[in-house]
Amino acid sequence: MIRLRGVTKRFRDGAREVAVLRGVDLDVAPGELVAIVGPSGSGKSTLLHVAGALDRDFEGEAVVAGTALGGLDDAARAELRNRAVGFVFQSFNLLPALSALENVMLPGILRRPGPDGRIAEIRARARDALLRVGLADRAEAPPSRLSGGERQRVALARALLSRPAVLLADEPTGNLDAASGADVIRLFSELARGGVSVLVVTHEERVSDAATRVLRLSDGRLG
C-alpha cells in the first residue's frame, strides 16, 4: 500500500529553487497496478524515490506498507526498503561482478539484523525467485551474458526476493524489445493480482494498457 498526501519536492539549482512535485496525492492499494505517465523531466523518478523511501527530504505525508516515512532515520528507511519495497529500473542496475543468482540474493544479504547462518537459505530463495521469472537455468550467468529481457527479469526476481508489499518500476520496458517488454508487463500484472501494490512509471502505451489506473504527472501534480 502506498499513500502520499500533499508531497512537495524541491531541488536547489544554484540559487534557484525548483519545485518538481507540488502537492502530490496518490493511493495505490494492494492488488492495483498504477501507471504514471508524463514527459521527460516531469518528476516521475522523483515521485518513485519518495514513495520508495530513497529520498529523505520532502514535504508532505507518505505512508508505505503501513509505515509513515516522516521522521525515519537512515537505518529505518533502509530497513523499510529492504523488507517492503522492490525496485526495478530502466537500466536494470545489476551488479556486473555477481552472477544472476548472487544479484537476486542481495536483498537477503542486506537483511537486518543479518543473514548470519542463512546464506544457503537465501540462495535457495533466490533460485525460487529466478524460477518464478523463468530464468532458473541462467542462475550462474553473469549479467553480461544475459539479454536485456533476461536482465530485467533478474532485476525483477531480485525485487521480489523479500516478497515486498510495494513494487516500484522506473521505465522498466524502456530498454526492452516488444516481446521482452510484454513478458515483464505480464509479470507485473501477475504480481498485482497476487496483492502487491505496483507503481510503474512509463511513457509506453503497452504498459498503461495493462494498468488498473493511469495517472498523468504534469506541472508537479498528478491528474
Binding site: A97, R111, R112, I119
Partner: peptide, 19 residues
C-alpha cells in the same frame, strides 16, 4: 545495520570483482 556476514559477503564480492 546489515549483519557482519552480509557486509563481509559484499566486501568479498567487491574484492573479487577487482582481484
Amino acid at each position: 545495520m546489515a549483519g557482519a556476514r552480509g557486509i563481509l559477503w559484499l566486501a568479498g564480492a567487491a574484492l573479487r570483482a577487482d582481484r
